[in-house]
Design a protein around this nucleic acid. Structure first.
Lengths: 105, 105
DNA sequence: CTTTTATAAAACCAAATGGTATCATGTCAA
DNA sequence: TTGACATGATACCATTTGGTTTTATAAAAG
């Protein structure tokens, strides 16, 4: 795995995006992550697997726990893809802003 | 629709991301988009519907054709979400870079 | 050693997804 | 008007996805 596709796929689910937000604060075990959701640990673990496949998190075993952390490198492919559009979004949004300003004159 | 979720969902499929790249060049009818893929027009139209639901494209009818265009505003919710992480990615990547540089000294 | 705790792994299920084929509709051209 | 063309809409299908339950394994606690 670890293709750009797997990263985009991982980001498509709201639960997984919430997990990323949670991990921004601090590293968490599967159980700790699961406490914040109304679903089983098994389900949460599956989401963590998808996030790991997408390269968005890394995991290390600590005793009987498995700790997940955000992986800053993992977001790179996604950012690269967006960068391809940046020029477009920027110029179009600027044009839009101009149009609105002219309209309100 | 037009929720952040629908935008993330739309971006999760490689065909749909390819369509966005194609539209960056110029506006296209469904048939023109479909020429670039090995699937039926109906399938392409479904993808365009998902992209439209996500707010990533806009469409206008021109005669019997339906022209799709990139919607620069549509990407905003996605960018906002990433912005929430920007500090994290930046500082961590900087730390990583430092570590690598120190390692090579 | 026994029990609890944290996770792994697999089987299973309903719903969503990505695709097809088919038919209806509206527009352009002859 | 007639026919060709571009799309819309629907029904249908196989696969994937997000979830549960159950069983197994390994580490921590008593």
């Amino acid at each position: 795995m670890h293709t750009p596709q797997s990263a985009f796929r991982a980001l498509a689910d709201p639960t997984r995006r919430d997990i990323l937000v949670m991990l921004r604060g601090r590293d968490l075990s599967i159980g700790e992550v699961a406490e914040n959701f109304d679903m089983t640990r098994a389900a949460v673990k599956k989401h963590l697997t998808v996030l790991s496949d997408g390269g968005l998190i890394t995991t290390v075993t600590r005793g009987r726990e498995r700790i997940s952390s955000l992986n800053p490198e993992g977001i790179a492919p996604v950012c690269d893809w967006f960068a391809f559009f940046e020029g477009f979004w920027d110029t179009r949004l600027a044009a839009l802003k101009d149009a609105i300003e002219k309209d309100t004159e």
